[in-house]
Simulated scan of single mutants.
Amino acid sequence: MKTRTARLAALAGVPIVVVASAAVAAPPAERRIATAAANTACWDFSDLPQTTEYRIGDTFTAEHADIEFKHYLLNGNKVTNPAALAQATNTQISRSDRPELRTCLINAHVEPNAPLRAVTLKFGHTGSANGPHTNIGVNGELKEVSGSLTGLNGQVLGNAATGRVAIVVNLDDPQADPQTGTMELHAIKGAIEKFTFGGVQFFVDDVCLKK
């Protein structure tokens, strides 16, 4: 197995935690904000080399997680197309800052170093001749989605033994092409021990892991 290692930069928007002196304690609300920030790691893919193409079986290490690229599921079949790849690109399909991660007929399988209570990400997906197509998975259960990701909104995904999540999908503009928005995975039982995303042409950015 080929392995490439890269360190992903933390998202610039994560709040800076200011430590108060013992003489001036932070009020409870500020302490809660600081704790939330300390328990969240976000990726903006700015440190991922844009010249590197990731293929099936390639891996890299990010902040608090390992990512392996795996076969994409299309019409119930694993894609073996040699053109399948993931790559950081100088684009803004997800309506976030450049760069972003593009997945083309490939899945990014993420295994956090510790169980998570939530995952959020920004996405943009462009359609093929048959429209947008994505794979979303949590704790071993994988959903193949034809059309808009809003089809997952309100659904529950995961494994009863390890954890299940409620999915929230919000589109920036339902009429826009490409479709862009945010997806949230919230643990409602157990925790998120692994999750997967990919698409025919699926772009993601600002991926945040919340412990």
Rank of each mutant, 00 (worst) to 15 (best):
M1E: 08
T3V: 13
R7V: 11
L8S: 04
L8D: 05
L8G: 05
A9I: 00
L11T: 12
A12W: 09
G13W: 13
V14A: 15
P15E: 09
V18W: 07
V19C: 01
A22W: 00
V24E: 11
A26F: 01
E30N: 10
E30F: 03
E30Y: 05
R31D: 13
A34R: 11
A34K: 12
A34H: 14
A37S: 15
A37C: 06
A38P: 00
A41T: 15
C42D: 13
C42G: 15
W43H: 12
L48K: 08
P49G: 10
Q50M: 15
T51Y: 08
T51D: 15
Y54P: 03
Y54Q: 00
I56R: 13
I56K: 09
D58L: 03
T59R: 14
F60A: 07
T61I: 06
T61D: 10
E63Y: 01
I67K: 01
I67Q: 01
H71G: 04
H71Q: 13
L74W: 03
N77A: 12
T80H: 11
N81G: 03
A83M: 11
A84L: 05
A84Q: 07
A86R: 12
A86K: 10
Q87K: 14
Q87W: 01
A88F: 09
T89W: 00
N90F: 06
Q92F: 02
Q92W: 02
Q92M: 07
S94A: 14
S94Y: 05
P99N: 08
L101Y: 00
R102N: 11
A108M: 13
H109M: 01
A114K: 10
A114P: 00
P115D: 10
L116V: 04
R117F: 08
A118W: 00
T120S: 15
T120V: 09
T120A: 11
K122S: 10
F123E: 11
G124P: 02
H125M: 14
G127T: 07
G131H: 02
T134L: 00
N135L: 01
E141L: 12
E141S: 08
E144G: 04
V145L: 10
G151Y: 04
L152I: 06
A161S: 14
T162F: 04
R164V: 15
V165D: 12
A166P: 00
A166G: 01
A166E: 12
I167V: 14
I167G: 10
V168A: 15
V168F: 05
D172W: 02
D172H: 09
D172C: 01
D173W: 05
Q175Y: 08
D177N: 14
D177R: 12
P178G: 12
P178Q: 10
T180Y: 02
G181K: 03
G181W: 04
L185K: 06
H186M: 11
A187L: 11
A187D: 10
A191F: 04
I192T: 11
E193P: 00
K194M: 06
T196I: 12
F197Q: 04
G198S: 03
V200A: 03
Q201R: 11
F202L: 06
F202R: 01
F202M: 02
F202S: 00
F203D: 09
F203Y: 15
V204K: 07
D205K: 06
D206Y: 02
D206L: 09
D206P: 01
C208G: 07
K210T: 15
K211P: 00
